[in-house]
Amino acid sequence: MAIDTQVGEELKRKMTCIVCPTGCQLEVQRDGDGKLSITGFQCRRGEAYAENEILNPRRVLTTTVKIRNASLPLLPVRTTEAIPKELLAEAMQVLAQVEVTAPVKTGDVILANILDTGIDVIASRDMKRVEGVA
């Protein structure tokens, strides 16, 4: 689904807005001057989403990292904001190397500034320390 964002090329693309569960069907058109016209949204967030999706698509990454001394071997984490979509796979590789030790609190920074995005990866739940668990 690679889109050439070069100005001077016309473009017409349909997409589903992912901002909320309503899932508006959006249509983006770019004329020869690079001007975008967006239709189909029911709120302003949808309009902004469509624009970003053409110019700089981003996603929040949610995954897990290893945790020691907890009741479970994995801690769920997420990026505090959406990161560029093309960095998702690399971010997964980076987080596969991360290991933390309980206790952890929701919101604790697990990895700061992932891939120089300026965006942190934080814990999305509490994890108590359990003695006798590796």
Binding site: P21, V60, T62, T63, P76, R78, T106, S124
Partner: peptide, 21 residues
């Protein structure tokens, strides 16, 4: 662990565990 919970109630996109917390 994915996000998308709580948009109606808390006006933000939480993960499942965050919503529970």
């Amino acid at each position: 662990i994915h996000n998308g919970f709580g948009l109606h109630r808390f006006k933000e996109e939480l993960t499942g565990p965050e919503y529970a917390y």
